[in-house]
Simulated scan of single mutants.
Amino acid sequence: MAKHVFLTGLPGIGKTTLIQKTLEVLKSSVVSIDGFYTEEVREGGRRIGFDVVTLSGRRGVLSRIGSSPSVAGHEYRVGQYVVDLVSFEQLVLPLLRHADLDSSGVKKVCVIDEIGKMELFSQSFIQAVHQILSGSGTVILGTIPVPKGKPLRLVEEIRNREDVKVFSITRENRDSVLQDVVTAVKNCLKGEVC
């Protein structure tokens, strides 16, 4: 039986948009929702990096093109993007560490968009995700990248877990799969088959 719901697909296919549409539907039910999503940052029509945005509207830098001061002598880089691990962890880790049952004992949804190369530089993030995956009070609604190149250990673990329902998002199904994703999350919240 699945306890968590993840979307996977190529970059730019609409995973984050689908997460946002799912949240709009879920807000109408009495569900506690928290978490974050990743958003492109553009300047003059050119992508210059990514920000992390919490569902409460707080924003922090995830990465920018170019170089930045290294953290403890190490620069975290994915292609042309330098990851700001300190900014990411300061914003995201408190959300994930409190992603357990709310005060009324009702299960909640934790949005983690996304679990990818940039985010996985943080060992604290990996530990927090493992804790939520193993817990019983929170349903993760998240995104993971499609396999490409060297496998990402946590991503492959999530993809292969029996308690995770993974939806592959394509241009053909991204508009029609919304209700299936919503139903899967609601079923996970009720402890039913997702």
Rank of each mutant, 00 (worst) to 15 (best):
G57Y: 15
N160F: 06
Q123V: 04
G14R: 14
D163N: 13
I33D: 03
S67C: 11
L101W: 11
F36S: 05
L62H: 00
S63C: 08
G105Q: 02
D102T: 05
F121P: 11
V41L: 14
S176K: 10
I132P: 09
D175P: 03
G73I: 09
V106T: 00
V193Q: 04
R97Q: 14
Y37G: 10
V111E: 02
T138I: 12
P151I: 11
V86L: 13
V181S: 09
D163E: 14
V82P: 05
V78M: 12
G35K: 13
V109A: 00
I158K: 04
Q127Y: 02
I126R: 13
I169F: 04
V111I: 02
I65L: 15
V31M: 08
S124W: 09
T143Q: 06
P11N: 03
H130S: 07
I19A: 06
M118S: 12
Y81M: 09
S87F: 06
V78H: 14
R64A: 11
I112G: 03
V78Q: 12
L7S: 12
T38P: 00
M1Y: 14
G45E: 08
L23W: 03
R171H: 05
V139N: 01
T16W: 02
Q90M: 10
V41C: 13
E89F: 15
G44D: 11
I140M: 15
